[in-house]
């Protein structure tokens, strides 16, 4: 595959050039001293490390240009370790470069391929072995072995079954029921519409019974964001408008894209922004996606007030919250 034309000749490995330390005993002594100094620096690093570990106080903060104010113990422990390691390396390499033989040597390669003879032997041995086992003739054994080997993989798979429960309808449900009070997060206080000024945002969770426990997996589906606008700012149909209360609108805070908390509200544009992949939802139009990779609006929670004037859910979410999954009916 090489070209037809005659190539330029290979001049061969260039002649070896001696280093100073190879020729001059003084240079050699000097190199030796340099190596020793590098190793000694490493020892100093270890001493710094031990000193910092035992004697520098945890609460000492010092100012260092570039670094700013840093914790002294942390800094000097690290520097001590760094020096102790680095200078061992530097010493060893300096030693190798200046004092160890630096003459290049040439070794020959051999092709990876085995000798033809060996290959033939191998094929013969393999054939003999196969003939002895008579696999070719005993097809009953071969098939049944194949079957059991195929099946044996099922056992470890089955063993993994108890890793977790089946999803069932779990992804569709949240703790919101009709009449569930909205309580602040954190704080667990019920809220009235008057607690929320126009333009304000609040994170809420469904109220739980006294002494009850809220698992993180509940928060992961229940977290809701309240936003108060002037009612005339909404561009909603009658049904959606009926889900708001005096300009307060409630959305699931769990992003419909991949489930991050949709935490950023821009008051001027009335946009909700998810910091994970910047999906942007328009609050005035029922959290319609106006930018980013999310494909569905944030589910809206219908709210109203109870007899005491506290905000409650009218009814559960009418669609699953959070990211999509195969069984989700999104039509």
């Amino acid at each position: 595959m090489s070209s037809e034309l005659e190539a330029i000749k290979d001049p061969g490995v260039p002649a070896h050039v001696h280093r100073q330390a190879d020729l001059d005993p003084k240079a050699e002594k000097k190199a030796e001293r340099q190596v020793a100094i590098l190793f000694a620096l490493s020892a100093l690093g270890t001493i710094l490390f031990i000193y910092s570990y035992i004697w520098i106080s945890e609460d000492l903060f010092i100012y260092f240009p570039v670094l700013g104010t840093t914790n002294a113990k942390q800094l000097f422990l690290g520097l001590g370790l760094a020096f102790s390691l680095f200078f061992i390396g530097a010493g060893a390499i300096h030693w190798a470069k200046t004092l160890m033989p630096d003459e290049e040597v040439i070794a020959m390669r051999h092709e990876m391929r085995s000798e033809d003879e060996d290959r033939r032997e191998l094929v013969k041995t393999a054939k003999q072995g196969a003939a002895a086992a008579a696999l070719g003739r005993r097809s009953l054994i071969k098939r049944s072995l194949g079957l059991s080997l195929g099946l044996i993989g099922l056992s470890p798979l089955l063993l993994l079954r108890d890793l977790g429960p089946l999803p069932g309808k779990d992804l569709e449900k949240t703790s919101w029921k009709s009449g569930t009070r909205l309580v602040t997060d954190p704080g667990d206080r019920p809220i009235k519409p008057s607690d929320l000024e126009v333009g304000a945002v609040a994170q809420v969770l469904p109220a739980i019974a006294e002494g009850g426990h809220r698992a993180l997996s509940d928060i992961g589906k229940d977290a809701v964001l309240l936003i108060r606008l002037r009612p005339e700012e909404f561009q909603l149909d009658a049904e959606r408008l009926g889900m708001t209360y005096q300009g307060i609108i409630a959305f699931s805070k769990i992003c419909s894209h991949m489930g991050c908390a949709v935490a950023l509200y821009e008051q001027q544009t009335k946009h909700l922004l998810c910091p994970c992949h910047q999906s942007t939802f328009d609050v005035t139009r029922a959290a319609k996606v106006i930018f980013g990779p999310a494909a569905r609006p944030l589910p809206q929670l219908a709210i109203t007030v109870d007899s005491e004037g506290y905000l409650i859910a009218q009814k559960p979410f009418s669609e699953p919250v959070g990211p999509s999954y195969w069984e989700r009916n999104s039509q």
């Binding site: 690290g78 370790l81 390691l85 680095f86 390396g89 060893a92 390499i93």
Partner: peptide, 11 residues
Amino acid sequence: GFFFIVFGVIA
């Protein structure tokens, strides 16, 4: 030696 250098730089 290079191992120690890498370790030192990381430290």
